[in-house]
Amino acid sequence: MKVLENLNFSKAIIELLPKLLGEALHIVVITTIVGFLFAIVFGFILALGRVSKKKALNHIIILFQEFIRGTPLLVQMVYIYYVMPLFIEIFASIIGISGFKVSMGSMTAGIIGLGINYGTYISEVIRSAIISIDKGQKEAALALGFSNAQAMFKIVIPQAFRNSVPVFGNYLVMMVKDTSLMAYITAQEFLMTTKAYTAQTFLTIESYTILAGVYLAICIPLAFAIRILERRLNRGRR
């Protein structure tokens, strides 16, 4: 087996790993953190819209959710990266600003894509957590003299959030892995960096094994940390 004899892991580790743990890691971490916060805020807003009594708002949000869930995340990212700038330019020229050039950074597009996509899924988690809180909780708050909004934000939503944390954790780990899709919109994240390195060195087996190892080294401890956090939050629950 010539291939196996020629394996050169030490070279690949020395050359590729610093690249992965440098700029690429930076991109992955920032994208995940910002993208995830965006997803939670966005998901939260969608969920509030869904539990509100405004029928029209409900329908608009449902339509939007179907739209996001019915298309692949990769396509959404590509759309945001390549098509959105064109739309903005067209819109700019319609309202009379000519020669307006928009360039969308690949990381920005990644963050927006991940945020919207994950936010859509997370909104369903938050929504079902909100409606699963016993109606008596809100009534007790109202009976004490809290307003509807206060009862919601001070009593119902904190409990719903707490109940959602385990699921949030799973989504966070998934998001780390899905940053790899940004390779298709030219972001120099792990996959793109590894691909570029193999193209130069042909150390295919070594490079992609290292790549997989890097994802594992991030995702396993992360999942573990989330489980600990979850246990902490479980204190004081019925």
Binding site: A140, G145, Q159, G236, R237
Partner: peptide
């Protein structure tokens, strides 16, 4: 709201706030 502040209510199922300690339940409002 002001009216409800002057009317206390106890429910069959208590409806205590589970994420707060007993004293926090009492002092929250």
């Amino acid at each position: 709201r002001t009216y409800r502040q002057s009317v206390g209510m106890c429910f069959q199922n208590f409806n205590l706030f589970p994420f707060m300690t007993v004293i926090d339940n009492v002092t929250y409002a």
